[in-house]
Amino acid sequence: MSGRISLVLCVVLLAVAPLVLSPFRLGLLAKYLCFAIVAVGIALAWGRGGMLTLGQGVFFGLGGYAMGMHLKLREAGPAGLPDFMVWSGVEELPALWKPSANPVFALAAVVVLPGLVAFLLGLLVFRQRVRGAYFAILSQALAAAFVILLVGRQGLTGGTNGLTNFSRFFALDLTDPGGRRVVYAITAAALVLTYLAVKLVVRSRFGALLVAVRDHEDRVRFLGYDPALVKTITFAASAVVAGLAGALFVPVVGIISPALLGVVPSLELLVGVALGGRFSLAGAVAGAIAVNYAKTLFSEDFPEGWLYLQGGLFVLVLVFAPRGLAGVVEAARDRFRRRPREEVAG
């Protein structure tokens, strides 16, 4: 029950934020919420499913580019070309961009594309029983390759600069605080819905199955389930969530570029989850928001400090609180609760 109360409290906080925060701060909060959405997916795949994915940036990016391409085409100049293509001398819209003009296609691609890539990779990898650190390494290699590809295909992807200069998000004017407030509201709603959906999955039979696969994959086979399929579905779901976050990131921050998606940003997405507690969805969300808030604070006055802090955080959390802050809270609560009874059973 206390979980439900905190949930309501958080929703109220999210609803009040636009009233008290400046447009600039509200924009920052919306950005943190995007990362929090990714964190929910990571907590599902890593905390519940034991799949340490070091390539979430790829799926975030696929969602972001799918959205960004559509928005770019809406604002395209007279030749129907996005600005960066004109600058880099592209004369005709590349075939890869054409379907993005259709809003339905673009919105579907935001979730289908990352989901499909993750499903394919998961199927190939998990069916061969490649797992644990191997999977982590492969997902990291995917992130490395993806970024190099994006940077190298300047005319197609905008290269290092990525896609930027968005003034409208469908009907919304992104230069206007009112429009940006709506974008914030959409992001906040997306976070709450994602959280609830993943929570339902975690509590379902599938959630129990996922934990079983995490702890004892080989045994699950002898219950008649295919663990590879369970993992693949979960991994794809976490990718879909990351894609959604990436798509929202575009109107919220106004850019999607390779620098946000590579090996290092993908790992950064994990810092908050590790800090908050990978086994707890709420912990992961809180951790992601806290870490990104800290990052903003530090980058404003003390940018070098951030890397020390981030690196130090990883080390400290893993050494002293491998279950994250949520784990610390849980342990404290358990100790508090256990005292009166417990010894009777067992």
Binding site: L52, G132, E304, L307, Y308, G311, L313, F314, L318, V319
Partner: peptide
């Protein structure tokens, strides 16, 4: 100093050593 405590937890060592790597990189930069 660190890794010794983490045997049997390969994924945790991965993240732990990444943290160390960040610190070392920044140290080199400084």
């Amino acid at each position: 100093s660190l890794i010794r405590r983490f045997y049997g937890r390969p994924l945790d060592t991965l993240l732990l050593t990444w943290g160390v790597s960040l610190v070392l990189q920044q140290l080199a930069r400084d």
